[in-house]
Design a protein around this nucleic acid. Sequence first.
DNA 1: CCAGTACTTAGGTTG
DNA 2: TAAGTACTGG
Length: 761
Amino acid sequence: MSYLDELNSSQREAVEAIHGPTMVIAGAGSGKTRVLTYRIAFMLEQGIDPFNIMSLTFTNKAAKEMSERIGKIVGTTDGKNITMGTFHSVFSRILRYNADRIGYPSNFTIYDTQDSKSLLKDIVKELNLDDKVYKPGLVLGRISSAKNNLISPDAYVANEEIMNEDKQARRPEIARIYKTYATRCFKAGAMDFDDLLYQTNVLLRDFPDVLHYYQQKFKYILVDEYQDTNYAQYLIVKKLAAIYENICVVGDDAQSIYSFRGANIQNILNFRKDYPDFILFKLEQNYRSTKHIVEAANSVIAKNQDQIKKSVWTDNSEGSKLAVVRTLTDNEEGKVITNKIFDLKQGTASSYNDFAILYRTNKQSRSFEEALRKINIPYKIYGGLSFYQRKEIKDLLAYFRLTTNQRDEEALKRVINYPRRGIGKTSIENIIIASNQYGVSMWDVIANFNQYPVALNTGTKTKLYEFVTMIQSFTAQLSKINAYDLAQTIAKSSGILKELYSEKEKGPEEVERYQNIEELLGGIKEFTINQGEDDDKSLAEFMIDVALLTDADADKGDEKNHVTLMTIHSSKGLEFPHVYLVGLEENLFPSQMALNSRSELEEERRLFYVAVTRAKDTCTLSYATSRFIWGNLVSSEPSRFIEEIDPKHLNFEAQQRGMGKSLSGRASQFDQPFTGGLNKSVSSPASSFKSLSQLDNSKVKTGATLDLKVGYNVLHDRFGKGKVTKLEGQDADKKATIFFPHHGSKTVLLRFANLTIVDVD
DNA sequence: CCAGTACTTAGGTTG
DNA sequence: TAAGTACTGG
């Protein structure tokens, strides 16, 4: 029972109330994760079977942290038997078990956002709609919010309010796109991220026996970050908890920062309605931050109208006031903050891990990155392109996806001609047309030409046949060899490894790509054998979760000594001794787009609250009086959020001067107009000369008539001397693959390449 | 097929 | 400005 002694009285009450509906409103830094983990430990101690517990989180990061902490307290065996993870991962597994009920294969693919957008782009084209009006991201957003509110394509058309919204936005065809999109996903045996929640709802709605089974299994349900759940998630939880009502939700309305993508604060109010006899616990003591920080944050959030009343307080020391720093430009902001970090680190013997720079938008990272690099401070930027989104990784994964699910159209489109095997755009379009015509998947078409005739020439059919046979040979090995061996086989036989290897000479980016592939294969190797089970894991098993993984899963235990740079959104749930909250300017934070309505402005304010409460010891606020926005220097006003802080918690620092020599980069370009505009008059005549000289270009190429043979040495205009290694195509399409010592292997069309034969060795 | 250029567009982000 | 895509000339 020793761990219970580590809790304060309200924490302890929240831990011990394991029966019936409970809601825990947990202020920032109030020990929320501790309560959740101890609560589970307490349940097990009371004899509750871990198989009957389900604990849901909103992010991978939170899920991982929770599972580690629980493992430590209750031991790994019990820990493993608890159903724990994000909504998406937990319900994707349940969907796989029951896929046949709703007409999906159990090995359905999960489309990520890129896949969804690429499919939507195709559909917009096929329906002959304007791709400027129906931009993939925007359309996906509409579809996503429909699914999050459990609105099917048919219900969408029938819903007047929604249809009117679309009409007024001059996008009346979204309903049609949605319907086509849903059909295509289904045909491909694929679910997008929103489907994982939407289809779970369908499953639980249409199959009472399935619902009953999971109601009995999950007698105890915990939901973290409840303020960030959307309607689809809310309803799943409500249904599963309907019999036993042992449900505990934990959240903080003041930290709700995802309403822009469907999170619904209403869920907290619904909870009161759904379980009138629920017990409410409030965790109000902050253990993280100094008094100045807690009270500064409180004074700002008090300006919000929509909130559950609570008073967060702390027993910690008073600490120092929040510093407010003003700089002239965004570049100077980078330098000043960086120097402050350097000085504080020297003065306090702390580690660079103790520092975080938080910003509203990802693109603000640039000036800090440059400044940190200049004075050699190690840093790590979170966010941006994740490992699993990189092109080379997605390419190889597409082969894996196709191996486990041939109907996966996005995977097929990605690799059908990568590495190049002479299957062109027109051929692919014809295959898509045929697949729509026959109502089958693209794979069905290319694997059964007899059954589904397509407009393709024999040569292309032969190439497709080879491709199909290759994939089938991979599939045949799924149950025979382990994940790592099959992954290796695919990487080699598909030609991807070779392709990347041959590009390695080109430059550091190509080398990195090759290394990324090696890293992925290494990760699969670890997955295959590391599990300690009797049997090796298969590639199909590896693919189950891969679409749901993020960078947080990729870099394992990276305890390097670095300053952290991230957006405020991704900082939620984290804490740092020293926080630098930068770019505090009107129209940036709060974002210009949030100024239209009170509710949007209040979400920005909650975001500000989240940012300030990440800090344990010091918090520095900074803004620049001018900043480059899309190439123009725009002057800016300090953020209203600074004024909203009770000034007794603030310390306005004198403006920093002479930090760097000259304002570098874009700042000096700003000076140019004042120095006479000379640069302008230099550059434009030069470019007009160039276009004049292009006009009288009358060179004529006759390369196609060259009688080339493999082994000839030839001279190319641009690449110099090289040796012909391969010849293919007829007449106008005749092309040669030539190895150039300085540029690697290139394939050129003879019609265009101005080749001269040097010798015929 | 390759590479250079003209043109477009620009929010925060998890799974 | 910067990055990404579509187009075009060789």
